[in-house]
Amino acid sequence: MSLDDALDVLAAALLLSGAMLALAASVGVLRFVDVLSRMHAATKPQVLGILLCLAGAAVRLRDSVDLWMLVLAGAFQLVTAPVSAHLIGRVGYRTRHVRRDRLHVDELAGPDVDD
């Protein structure tokens, strides 16, 4: 097996595992019980899934000028995903889209919350 073949196999493995994580993330968005839980699925496996796909594409493209664009896409993903998750989570909490029966403690609510 030549080096090129080995790299192609590596690229395929990265792309496939990235796609699997993205699939699991979307299943999580569907299945989790409230907005806050769904944001977990929409951040962690989703971000790593995209990073793996980008890495796979980078290995496949090797020495193309577009490689740097993949690096940028990954960097911005890491910077922006937590911010959007934070904002959506905050809005979700404030508009009471929280399943309180599925919470063990809620230290943001304070002791004298009515529900």
Binding site: L21, G28, V47, L103
Partner: peptide, 24 residues
């Protein structure tokens, strides 16, 4: 990041109910 992605992905696809959460 790798550990948490795998954990959340597993929670998403495994059968049964989701774990109890907390706001800390």
């Amino acid at each position: 990041l790798i550990l948490s992605s795998v954990q959340v992905a597993w929670q998403a696809v495994r059968p049964g109910e989701q774990d109890i959460s907390s706001v800390v």
